[in-house]
Design a protein around this nucleic acid. Structure first.
Ligand code: SF4
Ligand code: SF4
Lengths: 133, 133
DNA sequence: ATGAAATAGGACTACGCAAGTCGTATTTGC
DNA sequence: GCAAATACGACTTGCGTAGTCCTATTTCAT
């Protein structure tokens, strides 16, 4: 409960790695070996980060990935949001249709939880990749 | 990912309910019907809250539950910690033996994540039941 | 041109946890 | 003694996470 997925952790490690090398091009093989991450899993993480425009891919031999923005402009929240396609919410009614929760109408805690959700987002938004290199 | 469990939500609803009734004794049946919560599930949640000394149980006919502390002294974090027996951690290495994570030794993000973890705890600790009645 | 190095992406499996159900025992007020 | 309530363990089901496997595509270097 409340745990980040491994994919997100891998994504953060990868993005931080590229940033720490001053945005030098890096490959999946290089990163997966250095940090002992299953390369297939990391590959798909990188593909999502590419689709989310946080990094840029360079296909073919001598290819790899570079950052698509400055490290100061990539937050932990960005990485989470891109890797988890869905909306991140501390409760069901924040991440999907509120009606999906059978007790939505007489739920007495959704407003307080909304406040907490907002504060959590502030925390994740405020930490940038540039701070963790 | 990052979602509270239903048990925690049920626990918060129940604790808030009792608090809103000015600590009048309340039963599982009463709460489960009012909020459409499966009574068996709620029952076990209440038992955990009792073991965690957040509420007090009164067995037998005319029994039920009351708060064991003032609503100002029960935080959302307390409820989470008691219902989830385990340590709540944003990453594996915070909730179990660090060695369990195969990449612990060369993990470059555990310190930053630790900082985030700390901030999240502040958020959950600062919201008290008395604020959500 | 050809082959090697790299990204792109779908299909599938295995495992663990969340949520709920069921059955039974125990306590206690009337 | 009966009914209302808590206590608690065993079980099922479904879903999400993590990982594996396989194939296609792109592009550089020889
Ligand atoms: S409505 Fe209440 S119970 Fe349903 S998801 Fe939102 S917060 Fe949780
Ligand atoms: S060590 Fe790094 S990767 Fe392993 S759990 Fe802690 S943070 Fe996540």
């Amino acid at each position: 409960m409340l745990k980040l997925s491994k994919k997100v952790e891998y994504g953060l490690i990868a993005v931080r790695h590229i940033a720490s090398l001053n945005n030098q091009i890096s490959t999946v093989k290089e990163i997966s070996e250095k940090y002992t991450i299953p390369s297939d899993v990391l590959a798909k993480v990188m593909q999502r980060l590419t689709k989310g425009k946080l990094i840029s891919s360079h296909q073919g031999a001598m290819g790899g990935y570079t950052l698509a923005r400055r490290a100061e402009e990539i937050s932990v929240m960005d990485v989470i949001a891109v890797i988890e396609g869905t909306q991140v919410g501390i409760a069901q009614c924040f991440s999907e249709e509120p009606q999906n929760c059978s007790i939505f109408h007489n739920c007495t805690i959704k407003n307080p939880l909304g406040k907490i959700q907002h504060n959590l987002e502030l925390v994740f938004n405020s930490m940038k990749v540039s701070e963790i290199v």
